[in-house]
Design a protein around this nucleic acid. Sequence first.
DNA 1: CTCAGTGCAAAGGATTTGCATGCCG
DNA 2: CGGCATGCAAATCCTTTGCACTGAG
Lengths: 149, 149
Amino acid sequence: MSSLPGEADLHVTVAQRLRRDHQRYTPARRALVELLVGAGGPVSLPELLRRDVALAQSSTYRNLGVLEAVGVVHRVVVEGESARYELAEDLTEHHHHLICTRCGAVRDFTISPTLERSLARAFDQVSAETGFRPTHHRLDLIGRCERCA
Amino acid sequence: MSSLPGEADLHVTVAQRLRRDHQRYTPARRALVELLVGAGGPVSLPELLRRDVALAQSSTYRNLGVLEAVGVVHRVVVEGESARYELAEDLTEHHHHLICTRCGAVRDFTISPTLERSLARAFDQVSAETGFRPTHHRLDLIGRCERCA
DNA sequence: CTCAGTGCAAAGGATTTGCATGCCG
DNA sequence: CGGCATGCAAATCCTTTGCACTGAG
């Protein structure tokens, strides 16, 4: 179906990317990756700390920074509160976010490949007209989640 | 062509929305609105202060907060640096953002009404499936602007 | 042994808030 | 007059950094 690394290979891929930059795949980093795999969307730092008490705040910030630098996690900026983190797109699937303005929860969703292609064409056109060189795009729905509606 | 308030009526609309919440349309607030009208995209607070030295930092934060609360300005969150502000969409036109990851500049762009409608349909479907109630959406292109390419 | 990784505490930067004063309605 | 607005300075909140210690290669 897809060429994404399966659960089984994920950690191998992560370890490779870290090693490429002379970084180690330590237990703390592995714990972060596992937390991110299990989340249904981007997770904030307080949430990460809450889910694994063994993590120190400063080390977690540092490790997320390292993981981002080697292309394993992606930092997502949302309204209010603190930043959120998710696995890089090439380790998951291309997706978008439902952002609740009341409770701050963020959940993933996808749109049809057809629509994605239409968007891609539109972006190519904008790119040609403006000289802007996009590396990726961001498409989010802002509103109230089911529980906060 | 459109039903947007013209330059001429904009301040009247703003004044109305403020009055509705028992707020005044003071010179400082008017200055902010005018700065935002002239910008080609969302503006950061440091930029606003730089463009009008008469504005005090704390008052500007407070006034942007008030203007946001009455639906005149919208706060845009982007990677790194500080938040950016733009006029609310019903005072301008529905648009999206080109965000440069190098210099942080943000510029507006639009996509075709047809594509917007396709997106709207997709969002309706997501909404029906998840129970999420969107109030609006956000579609940004992330990359390098012409100058930073 | 050497250098990356870790945790604590202190530093930083953006934004918010307390308070006294000025001014519009 | 009464309350919103304003500016300054102090306080907060999230995030980053300095430093000494531990551990893996």
